[in-house]
């Protein structure tokens, strides 16, 4: 397997399933989706008041996107000028997340059901009592 330790992409990744890098990435994709939806709505606008509001919101979204992108580049979470490092980071992140999710799902299958099962049984018992 490829050695992944030679890049600091994702170096702040901790063992939390939802860490700072993922939350920043989620925020970035929300902002991008918002910009595109606002721009799409603008191209369908006829009412001046709607146009003014959406133009202003679009500009605010674009400014926020720029700030957030700069921040993520400083953090090393986003490397638009080093595609190889970015793909390597993607692969690393994919491996890490799905390994964590696999372990977590296994835990829920093993221990989650045995914890919830008695409660469910109890509810059924209470329902039976209630029917009688």
């Amino acid at each position: 397997m490829q050695q992944l330790g030679n890049t600091n992409y994702g170096s702040t990744m901790n063992t939390q399933p939802l860490n700072d890098q993922l939350i920043a990435g989620d925020l970035l994709s929300s902002v991008k989706a918002g910009i595109k939806a606002t721009a799409a709505a603008l191209t369908e606008t006829a009412t001046p008041e709607v146009r003014r509001t959406l133009e202003q919101q679009l500009q605010q979204g674009l400014n926020f996107h720029q700030q957030l992108t700069n921040f993520m580049m400083q953090k090393g979470w986003y490397k638009p000028y080093d595609v190889q490092a970015m793909i390597q980071g993607d692969l690393q992140q994919t491996q890490q997340i799905h390994q964590q999710l696999g372990e977590s799902m296994q835990y829920h299958q093993q221990f989650g059901s045995s914890y919830t099962q008695p409660q469910y049984g109890q509810t059924q018992y209470i329902q039976q009592q209630y029917r009688q």
């Binding site: 939806a37 606002t38 799409a40 709505a41 369908e44 606008t45 006829a46 009412t47 709607v50």
Partner: peptide, 8 residues
């Protein structure tokens, strides 16, 4: 416009 604003 209402539909777009609803979405937004």
């Amino acid at each position: 416009e209402m539909l777009d604003l609803h979405e937004l």
